[in-house]
Design a protein around this nucleic acid. Structure first.
Length: 570
RNA sequence: UGGGGCGUCGACAAACGGCAAGUCAGGAGUUUUUGGAGCUCCCAUUUGGAGGUUCGAAUCCUCCCGCCCCAGCCA
């Protein structure tokens, strides 16, 4: 049936490097990656890329991938974020073993390593203020100056570091720094800070510590302790790699670490048009109330996109399609939308729902009569079977499906015109009734052709359009939430420097009441459907008994909308 | 003006000195009881630019141009 030989292997420069390492036996044929989020926010699409990369590689090479919380800054981190991250990784479909890892579990070791560095003359306690340190760091083009405390003896440094740890000094009064080279052209090598004093409650270690390691110092150690082979991160850490290696080499020399040591590999982070993938800005979107929370369906967070109705499969497929490389790029939102349409087209049951209702009375259909018509659940998957949909004299159709004075390529319903009601009958519009007050279209009077039951005319006559509909008497009322991009421009904030100026004021439109076919009465939160001709929708957790709420995941491809756009331009 | 990266179709992205894959977007057609889906075809004589090496260059060399990152006791 399948031809496994045809399975294309995802390939990128990272996988190539790892394949080479496997050949040379650099890590004794082991592959061990990690996904190391800081629990200071929810995971977003950019993280999804990293998760798929790291866990994907582990799977492909028969290795492991650790989920590790980089919880070294207690002031920004919370348990809620830890929980949401675990939830998102699992939902995406990856297995990180029996438990997650935490940088905070290594604090003791990190501290011992620091003491070793001090005694070996590779680190010192600096009592300069932050401002002084900044001044003495030099600039991009000029070297820095040695700290006046750089020459302290190992004994004094050890004593001071111990005091820092014991809480004898105030926040900011001193830091532990690596002793490397204040004149290095790489600013990251100008004696980077290793430990700072923070009298803060940590979400896991409580008040056991008042000094916390810096990322720069902690991260290589975390990798080494977990026996990571390939430490994959984003481009902005590239300059940090010399320090990563410097640190690990020294600790291996000192016998605190075993070789082979992990190595850092960098790839370009994901950028997506019309969206923002910066934790800082996502936090602001939430805290400033531009959205309703981290899982607002407009958010590019994993929890948001999940609530929106995206599937893990679609997301993983997206991550595979965008590839992995070193060049800065901006992925077209259309690709993400393509991925979810592709997936949902295969699996979502079709159903009829009228979002902006227009009443239609079939004048020649007997009052009080009703019947059930058979509808296909999924033309892409005939195993999904069929269902019965009730039909009666009064129906709703979509307002957009009728036009009193139709433009050139409009072939939906219009006065005197015949169209098909899907799975039902051909109807012809005879009369347009207006609202006395507003003058707007209130109702349509149509006649049906009983010979066309099911949607085919025995005389072979054709219609140019098929409309979805719902029986007024049987319909379920529901609320439907339509989403547009959160931003109006491809690159939010690029022009003004402030993302706020590009926020789309119309990113959410709530429609109510909408009319849904009655079979959906028992739909549960998370259920996904295609509303025929309208798009893919999923049941929002805000739904209550008898009060369904749907989120529009994505529209269907809309050729008519494209034609209209073109017509308007002319 | 220091250091580190990166420039291949509108957007991603392959090609690893042998004659520019694929995908999305866009276009044309076909089909259709979703203007959906499917199917077919079109869409880089050319790889940021200029030189050079070579029988042969997106791939190697030189110079130039452009973009991104680094001066947190953030990660």
């Amino acid at each position: 049936m399948e031809s496994p030989a045809e399975t294309p292997k995802p390939s990128d420069f990272i996988r190539e490097i790892i394949t080479e390492d496997q050949k040379t036996g650099k890590y004794e044929k082991r592959v061990h990656t990690r996904f190391p989020p800081e629990p200071n926010g929810y995971l977003h699409l950019g993280h999804a890329k990293s998760i798929c990369l790291n866990f994907g590689i582990a799977q492909e090479f028969g290795g492991k991938c650790n989920l590790r919380f980089d919880d070294t800054n207690p002031e920004k981190e919370e348990q809620e974020y830890v929980n949401s991250i675990i939830d998102s990784v699992k939902w995406l479909g990856f297995d990180f073993g029996p438990e997650a890892f935490y940088a905070s579990d290594y604090f003791d070791f990190m501290c011992r390593a620091a003491e070793y560095l001090i005694s070996a003359g590779h680190a010192y306690v600096d009592s300069q203020t932050a401002e002084e340190m900044r001044q003495n760091r030099g600039t991009l083009t000029s070297p820095g100056k040695d700290s006046p405390f750089r020459g302290r003896s190992a004994d004094e440094n050890l004593r001071l570091f111990l005091e820092m740890r014991e809480g004898r000094h105030e926040d900011g009064s001193m830091v532990l720094r690596a002793k490397i080279d204040m004149a290095s052209p790489n600013i990251n090598m100008r004696d980077p800070a290793l430990y700072r004093i923070k009298h803060a409650q940590h979400h896991r270690t409580g008040s056991s510590w008042c000094i916390y390691p810096m990322y720069t110092y902690a991260h290589p150690l975390e990798d080494a302790v977990e026996n990571i082979t390939h430490s994959i991160c984003t481009l902005e850490f590239e300059d940090q790699r010399p320090f990563y290696d410097w640190l690990l080499e020294r600790l291996a020399d000192g016998g605190l670490l075993r070789r082979p040591l992990p190595g850092q590999l960098e790839f370009a982070r994901l950028n997506l048009s019309y969206t923002v993938l910066s934790k800082r800005i996502l936090i602001q979107l939430v805290s400033e109330g531009h959205v309703k929370g981290w899982d607002d369906p407009r958010m590019p967070t994993i929890s948001g996109i999940r609530r929106r109705g995206y599937t893990p499969e679609a997301l993983r497929n997206f991550c595979e399609r965008i590839g992995v490389a070193k060049r800065d790029s901006m992925v077209d939102l259309a690709l993400l939308e393509y991925c979810i349409r592709e997936d949902l087209n295969r699996r979502a049951s079709r159903v009829m729902a009228v979002l902006r209702p227009l009443k239609v009375v079939i004048t020649n259909y007997p009052e009080g009569q009703e019947e059930e018509l058979e509808a296909i659940n999924n033309p892409e998957d005939l195993n999904a079977g069929t269902r019965k949909v009730p039909f009666s004299r009064e129906l709703y159709i979509e307002q957009d499906d009728f036009c009193e004075d139709p433009p050139k390529q409009f072939f939906r319903l219009a006065p005197g015109r015949e169209v098909r009601l899907r799975y039902a009958y051909f109807i012809t519009c005879d009369k347009v009734l207006r609202d006395e007050k507003t003058g707007g279209i209130a109702e349509l009077h149509c006649t049906y052709d009983p010979e066309t039951r099911g949607g085919d005319a025995p005389d072979g006559r054709k219609v140019k359009a098929t409309l979805h509909w719902v029986s007024a008497r049987h319909a379920l009322k529901a609320e439907v939430r339509l989403f547009d991009t959160l931003f109006t421009v491809e690159e939010p904030g690029a022009g003004s420097g402030d993302f706020r100026t590009d926020i789309n004021p119309n990113s959410l439109e709530i429609l109510s009441p909408c009319y849904i076919e009655p079979g959906l009465a028992d739909a549960a939160a998370g259920d996904r459907y295609q509303f025929e001709r309208m798009g893919y929708f999923c049941v929002d957790p805000d739904s209550a008994e008898g009060a369904l709420v749907f989120n529009r995941t994505v529209t269907l491809k809309d050729t008519w909308a494209k034609i209209q756009k073109r017509q308007n331009k002319k």
